[in-house]
C-alpha cells in the first residue's frame, strides 16, 4: 500500500520505550510534498515520539516508516537528514561551533555542499532569520531567542524536503514568530513540507492547513484544521482548546456567524453579516 506521492508514510506504527506502556499505538498517516501540518496533543501524547520516527531517530517497534519510499529501518539518521530536517526544542543541544555562520553551515557541509553553493545557502539562511550582522559572533554567548533563530537557520540551510519543528516558537517574540511562519510558508510554496509540533492553537489555526491530533499515543484526528477545530468535544478529550476566536465564533453560530480560525476571518464574517465597513479600513 505504498503511496507513490507520499514523502513520509507511517504504516501501522507502534512504539514503546523500554519497560513502558506503548507511546504510539497503531498510527498510520502520510505526509505529501507541499503540506503544512500541525502535530498537536497534550504533553506526553506522543507528538515528539511520532516526529522522531520521520528521520529515523526512533524506529518502530512494529509497523514501518517509509521516507521517500524507502524504509527507515535500513537507513542511518545522517542519511535520512538529506530528506528530513529536524529542529529540536532546545537550541543548545546542537550549537557547538565558534561562529554563527559556521554553525549554520555545519548541516549543509555534512550533506557535501561546498564552495560558492555552501556560501550562498548559509547567506540565505542568515538573511532570512536576521542573523547576517551576527555572523561572526559566538552563538553560545547570544541570547536565548537568538540562539533559537540560529538553530532554525541551521536546519533551514540544509534545504530539507520535510522540516520538522518541535515547539519552535518558545522564547521567540511575536516578530520572530511571524518571520518564522513566513519562512515556513515559503518552503511550502516551493513544494517542501512542514510539520509543526506545537501547543499554540492560535498558530495552528492561522498557519496549518492540516492538523493531526494525538492522545495517549493514539491518532485521534487527522484532517483539515478548520474541520477538526470545529470538533470541540474531540479536542477537549485530547486536552486541546481551540483558539479563543474559534470558540467565540462557535458560540455565535446561532446568530448566523460562520466558523472562523483567525481574528481576520472572524472580522470578515462579522462585517459581511452586519454590512458595515471595517474599522481598520481593510477590504
Amino acid at each position: 500500500m505504498t503511496d507513490p506521492r507520499a514523502l513520509i508514510e507511517v504504516d501501522h506504527v507502534s512504539f514503546s520505550y523500554e519497560d513502558a506502556p506503548p507511546a504510539l499505538s497503531d498510527v498510520s498517516l502520510t505526509i505529501a510534498p507541499g503540506e503544512f501540518v500541525a502535530l498537536t496533543g497534550a504533553n506526553g501524547s506522543g507528538k515528539t515520539t511520532l516526529a522522531k520516527h520521520f528521520n529515523g531517530l526512533l524506529r518502530p517497534s512494529s509497523g514501518a516508516v517509509r521516507v521517500d519510499g524507502s524504509d527507515t529501518a535500513s537507513r542511518s539518521i545522517s542519511e535520512l537528514a538529506h530528506t528530513v530536517g529536524y529542529v529540536f526544542q532546545n537550541p543548545d543541544h546542537q550549537i557547538f561551533l565558534p561562529t554563527v555562520a559556521e554553525e549554520v553551515g555545519f548541516g549543509p557541509r555534512n550533506l557535501g555542499v561546498r564552495g560558492a553553493e555552501l556560501e550562498e545557502q548559509v547567506e540565505a539562511a542568515l538573511a532570512l532569520f536576521e542573523l547576517s550582522e551576527l555572523r561572526e559572533r559566538h552563538p553560545t554567548l547570544l541570547g536565548r531567542g537568538v540562539r533559537r533563530r540560529v538553530a532554525l537557520a541551521a536546519s533551514y540551510a540544509m534545504r530539507p524536503r520535510l522540516l520538522v519543528l518541535d515547539e519552535p516558537t518558545g522564547g521567540l517574540d511575536r516578530r520572530a514568530t511571524d518571520q518564522l511562519m513566513t519562512v515556513l510558508h515559503d518552503l511550502v510554496a516551493e513544494g517542501r513540507s512542514v510539520v509543526l509540533i506545537t501547543h499554540d492553537m492560535r498558530l495552528v489555526g492561522e498557519h496549518a492547513e492540516r492538523m493531526i491530533v494525538l492522545n495517549g499515543g493514539v491518532l485521534r484526528a487527522d484532517g483539515s484544521t478548520a474541520e477538526i477545530m470545529a470538533c470541540h468535544e474531540l479536542l477537549h478529550a485530547a486536552g486541546i482548546r481551540p483558539p479563543a476566536v474559534a470558540r467565540l465564533a462557535a458560540d455565535l453560530r446561532d446568530v448566523g456567524l460562520p466558523a472562523a480560525l483567525t481574528v481576520d476571518d472572524f472580522v470578515k464574517n462579522v462585517v459581511a453579516l452586519a454590512g458595515v465597513p471595517r474599522a481598520d479600513g481593510a477590504p
Partner: peptide, 18 residues
C-alpha cells in the same frame, strides 16, 4: 539523557557516527 538528545540533534544535521 542530555547526551542522547544532543547526539540525536547532531545526527539530524547529518552528522555521521559510523
Amino acid at each position: 539523557a542530555l547526551f542522547q538528545s544532543v547526539s540525536e540533534a547532531q545526527q539530524s544535521r547529518a552528522l555521521a557516527l559510523e
